[in-house]
Computed example of a mutant assay.
Amino acid sequence: MPGALLALAVGAFGIGLTEFVIAGLLPEISADVGVSIPAAGLLVSAYAISVAVGAPLLTAAGTRVPRKTMLAGLMALFIAGNLISALAPSYGVLMAGRIVAALTHGAFFGIGSVVAASLVAPARRASAVALMFTGLTAANVLGVPLGTALGQQLGWRSTFWAVTAVGVVSLAGIALLVPARPSEASGGLRAELRVFGQVQVWLALAVTALGFGAVFGTVTYVAPIMTRVAGFGSGAVPWLLVLLGAGLFAGNLAGGRAADRRPMPALYTSLAGITLVLGVFAVTAHARVPAALTLLALGVTGFMLVPAVQTRVMEKAADAPALASAANIAAFNLGNAVAAWLGGGAIGAGLGYTAPAWIGALLAGAGLLVAVLAGALDRRARPAVEADVQ
């Protein structure tokens, strides 16, 4: 892995860790800052909303800033947010720290994806994006279980100190290893916003929201599914999450290679796989071994989608790839939030803990239809382009 990609992956690891690890520390946080667990849970919701807001805003604000400088500034802000969280004397200050850290999330992944793609030959862009996102998958496989254990043993603040240290390492890596290049010519924010007038950009964002919403809307309820439906003990949940994370890691790398070879077929395959696996999961969730194997398969098919859709957004928004890529991260979080809300509503309505999987299968199927429509528009546009060339 090139040094610059490693620095970006470390940053992705830290960002993924601070997003997901808090779910395992809610009891400790609620007891320490004197709020209920539902109130502590708002620290998760506020993070997701701040990602959706901060992704396009911070990326747009930095359109004329060299990308290395922007990445370093975002990581410095990320460090500040987690430092605030580690030192927070009250719930309100902790919430502020979470919001500050979250504002950098989407912009870092959006700009980082463009930088990662620029470091390699065009034929390997999807693989380079996948390598950067290995940091996010590693956060799920190793970071979240270790960060949760650290917080339970030494106090939840120790986890935020550890995340702050990861941010410092990433900032040093960006400063030393990411090549400095002049800011690319830009017509300004108004010119970059014009890419959102393109149907294909919106179709790509819709695929992201539907596809990832399908996956993480189900993963949100994986603990009750695996304990109350499959019959696992609560002590098995961390190991099941490690199994899911291993699938995410493998799927991300496989998806990068597939998207480099045949981008649209890779997109179709991932979405069809997610649809099928979620439908199967709603059935296999009633037995431990099949449920665990299907959870692994969900991780693989789910993160095969990452490189394909991220590179497609950058391709279709070639005049503003960083801004569109950041918007893609916002779509990712928006899809997750809506799908989790739908799943929770279905469970509350008495449809059972497997209801989120059925809902996810429908969302992924809708995402596949959107992707097929985008592919058809590509094929329709191709003869017109060839005629213009001739």
Results as ranks from 00 to 15, higher is better:
Leu5Thr: 01
Ala9Gln: 02
Ala9Trp: 07
Val10Arg: 12
Ala12His: 10
Phe13Gln: 11
Gly14Ala: 15
Gly16Gln: 13
Glu19Tyr: 12
Ala23His: 01
Leu26Pro: 09
Glu28Ser: 15
Asp32Glu: 13
Ser36Glu: 11
Ile37Met: 13
Ile37Ala: 12
Ala40Phe: 10
Gly41Glu: 12
Leu43Pro: 03
Val44Glu: 01
Val44Cys: 02
Ile49Ser: 02
Ile49Glu: 01
Ile49Tyr: 06
Ala55Tyr: 03
Pro56Asp: 00
Leu57Ser: 00
Gly62Gln: 05
Arg64Cys: 00
Arg64Phe: 01
Lys68Leu: 05
Ala72Ile: 15
Ala76Glu: 10
Leu77Lys: 04
Phe78Tyr: 15
Ser85His: 11
Ser85Lys: 13
Ala86Phe: 14
Leu87Val: 13
Ala88Tyr: 06
Ser90Cys: 11
Tyr91Val: 06
Leu94Gln: 12
Leu94Arg: 14
Ala102Pro: 10
Gly106Ile: 00
Phe108Thr: 01
Phe109Lys: 00
Gly110Asp: 00
Ser113Cys: 10
Ala116Cys: 03
Ala116Ser: 13
Arg125Tyr: 02
Arg125Cys: 02
Ser127His: 11
Ser127Pro: 02
Ala130Met: 08
Phe133Ser: 11
Thr134Ser: 15
Leu136Cys: 02
Leu136Asp: 05
Ala138Tyr: 09
Leu142Trp: 02
Pro145Ala: 08
Thr148Arg: 13
Gly155Pro: 11
Ser158Glu: 14
Phe160Gln: 05
Val163Glu: 08
Val163Asn: 04
Val169Ala: 15
Ala172Gln: 03
Pro182Trp: 13
Glu192Ser: 09
Phe196Asn: 04
Gln198Asn: 06
Val199Pro: 01
Gln200Thr: 15
Val201Trp: 00
Ala206Met: 14
Val215Thr: 15
Gly217Phe: 05
Tyr221Gly: 04
Thr227Arg: 08
Arg228Gly: 15
Phe232Arg: 00
Phe232Gly: 04
Gly233Pro: 01
Ser234Asn: 12
Gly235Leu: 09
Val237His: 01
Pro238Asn: 07
Trp239Thr: 03
Leu240Val: 07
Val242Gly: 03
Val242Asn: 04
Leu243Ser: 01
Phe249Gln: 05
Leu253Ile: 15
Gly256Trp: 04
Arg257Ser: 06
Arg257Met: 09
Arg261Leu: 14
Pro263Phe: 07
Met264Thr: 09
Pro265Thr: 07
Leu267Lys: 02
Leu271Asn: 06
Gly273Thr: 11
Leu276Gly: 08
Ala285Thr: 09
His286Trp: 15
Val289Ser: 06
Thr294Gln: 12
Leu295Ala: 10
Leu295Tyr: 12
Ala297Met: 13
Ala297Ser: 10
Ala297Phe: 07
Gly299Lys: 06
Thr301Tyr: 11
Phe303Arg: 03
Pro307Phe: 08
Ala308Arg: 08
Arg312Gln: 14
Ala317Ile: 02
Ala318Asn: 12
Ser325Glu: 02
Ser325Phe: 05
Ala326Val: 02
Asn328Met: 10
Ala331Thr: 07
Gly335Cys: 04
Asn336Trp: 04
Asn336Asp: 05
Ala337Ile: 14
Ala340Asn: 01
Ala346Lys: 10
Thr354Trp: 04
Pro356Ala: 05
Pro356Asp: 05
Trp358Thr: 12
Ile359Lys: 03
Leu363Cys: 00
Ala364Ile: 08
Ala366Asp: 02
Leu368Ala: 13
Val372Thr: 08
Ala374Cys: 04
Leu377Ser: 05
Leu377Glu: 11
Asp378His: 14
Gln390Arg: 15
